[in-house]
Amino acid sequence: MEQVIELLSLSPPGWGGNLLRGLLHSLEIALGAFGFGLLIGLGGAIGKLYGGPVLRDILAVYTTVVRAVPELVLILILYYVGTDLINKAAGAMGYGRVEISGVAAGIWVLGIVQGAYATEILRGAIKAIPIGQIEAARAFGMPPLKMLRRVTIPAMMSFAIPGLANLWLIATKDTALLAVVGFNELTLETRQAAASTRAYFTFFLAAGALYLMVTLLSGRVFARIEKWARKGQPGHRRAGA
């Protein structure tokens, strides 16, 4: 037991600090990717619902391909193709090799994956809004962007939150896939700690506990957000009883 505590202690020779740093990186990327994905998702949902035929086709290809290809493969493609393209572009403009920050690359890669799912979640949520609410906004002369901000987004929230909560949890866990491109998030840090000390069980258990904590905390946060988003709606429990 003492040995375990020593291994997990925050300062060297313990590896606890590395694990926490990895966790921080993971959360950083998860947050960034989730936010980036939400932006893509909102634009994608609106494009799919109200866009012209060309835009709708492009978005259909995007959501289909991203959701069809395994995330690990996508991450490898997007990461290597992405950095390659940037370097080619930099080379063409006369710059040397560009060092791409792991965090930025991670956010970009996972954000594109998240965006495809978010597009579908938000499209469904917007379609679930009773049409009369949108019609009322139109009937009173509300301009489209204001309608989006004042009516569509708040009214779709309660329909979108459960799906988005799922998506957030997936984001936190998908950060582990970035280990394959050498990004030192929680999983890679754990592997290094485990390999160096041969205490595989201890470290992977510790990492598992950290992921679980993130999930539990996220659950509480989303429960609050959902409660807020559902304001004005009678409770299901009461309605069902």
Binding site: A136, A137, A139, F140, G141, P154, A155, M157, K231, Q233
Partner: peptide, 16 residues
């Protein structure tokens, strides 16, 4: 439109 006060059959109040 912003000068026409519409009242709908299904009320269409903003529920949020």
């Amino acid at each position: 439109r912003s000068r026409l006060g519409m009242v709908f059959q299904a009320f269409n109040l903003w529920t949020h």
